[in-house]
Nucleic acid binder design. Structure first.
Lengths: 240, 240
DNA sequence: CTCCGTTGTTTGTTATAACAAACAACAAGC
DNA sequence: GCTTGTTGTTTGTTATAACAAACAACGGAG
């Protein structure tokens, strides 16, 4: 009987290495780990309360995705973004996300458009109230609402990868950036263009949004220690 | 033989999971595994003569890269490419490889150009002699010679991922395709455009090359069982 | 003959232990 | 005082065993 019940209920038990992967990914995105920091397997395993095997699996996956890099001893380290790497990521992002916006304009559905506009209103509300704690989530949902409309899974997957790569840095700056009201107009314009079915305009707006944020981020490169000017970015043992 | 020697003697101390990863990747690219086939860990471990742990690592990495998919039981299966997926991959490939060609034209170096033309001549020789055994390697080197010229590591990495995804299918058809002399002119034209520094032309030629091959591949979809028309693509348990 | 339950096997998952290489620390020698 | 060799610790790698879920095969009941 227990067997029959189990067969009927369809228990879905998520593997531990998947949990570790999600937790690690979210912590990375939240900027919880400093760039260049090493992530020892046993420490993570202990903090998660599991063995090192699933942690190792999660790390392997993240390294394969380019979200983590591997240091000298094959140790996983959170990547340090140089200005050059940020520019390269921006180039690829514009190419891919621009194309996704173009495709989204081609086959936009009313339901998705409605969700987009709802997100737009929510974001504007949040800006007026200056309550930006959940802004990042809505912002992410808005962008990926557009990209999902393109209905090209490979493209969506790659854009997610790109967001993961520049995630911590972007998450740190977007709230500051958005208070200057520089991003919202692009968002609204992109949404309008998609509703009109104007693919070129949608692509242009998304590209402008991405490049604007990247420019702002780059201008802050020296102010905050978020991204490194040089590629070395190592801990100098000497000095004061 | 190299791997046997490496196994007997301790020449290189490359991790085992790296070896497993490379061997699996090459076998996939060579089309050694039928699409839809499951890859049990213990079988692979036995065939490699190692434990299942490094094999599992390699599989995890390949799944994270999208080179392998995971089936119902989290089992790794070699992905079956549907026509729709192939079209989506082609879209992203055109976007990314086209941009790479454009960037390559912007900062082309004489040494790389020389290597490109050498590859071009080798390919033409091979076509005339109809000895296409090593053609795929040269073809791959030619394309990635262009993409490496763009000097954008993230872009190069993503293009490599895309090639891996449609690898087996493409490897199977390219030799047939190239005997029709349909691809070489695009290659030569792209090379010329890069030398002239004409980014737009280089992009157009690469895009034409990719789309031409994709069209040809799609026309063969029904003839050979390479790609599936439908998404199911189940494994027939019946006779061999 | 067909349907269903039981059982044995397969297979992915996780934990643990043994191992090896690299870094840190400390002590001896010049 | 500085360098160097040795040792202890840290940390990634690999193998192995125990485990659980799913599939296949077999046998009994209707």
């Amino acid at each position: 009987m227990a067997k029959a019940a189990a067969k009927l209920k369809k228990i879905e038990r998520e593997p531990l290495w998947d949990l570790a992967h999600v937790q690690l990914r979210d912590a990375l995105l939240a900027g919880h780990f400093a760039p260049g920091r090493a992530l020892p397997l046993r420490d993570l395993a202990e903090s998660f309360g599991i063995s090192i095997t699933p942690v190792r699996d999660a790390i392997t996956r993240l390294v394969a995705q380019g979200v983590l890099q591997q240091g000298p001893r094959n140790a996983a380290v959170v990547p340090t973004l140089t200005v050059r790497e940020l520019r390269n990521l921006t180039i690829v992002r514009c190419e891919l996300e621009g194309r996704a916006a173009r495709e989204a304009a081609a086959n936009a559905d009313p339901k998705g458009l409605q969700a987009l506009q709802a997100g737009l209103r929510t974001m504007q509300d949040m800006i007026e109230r200056e309550s930006l704690t959940r802004y990042l989530d809505v912002h992410r949902e808005f962008h990926f609402g557009i990209y999902a409309m393109a209905d090209i899974p490979v493209l969506l997957e790659m854009v997610e990868n790109l967001w993961l790569r520049c995630g911590p840095v972007l998450s740190f700056v977007v709230p500051h950036y958005v208070l200057l009201r520089k991003g919202t107009d692009h968002h609204a314009a992109a949404c309008d263009a998609i509703r009109r079915g104007d693919g070129a305009a949608a692509e242009a707006e998304i590209v402008a949004d991405i490049e604007g944020a990247a420019r702002y981020l780059e201008s802050l490169a020296d102010a905050h220690g978020i991204i490194q000017r040089s590629a070395v970015a190592s801990v100098r043992p000497g000095g004061s």
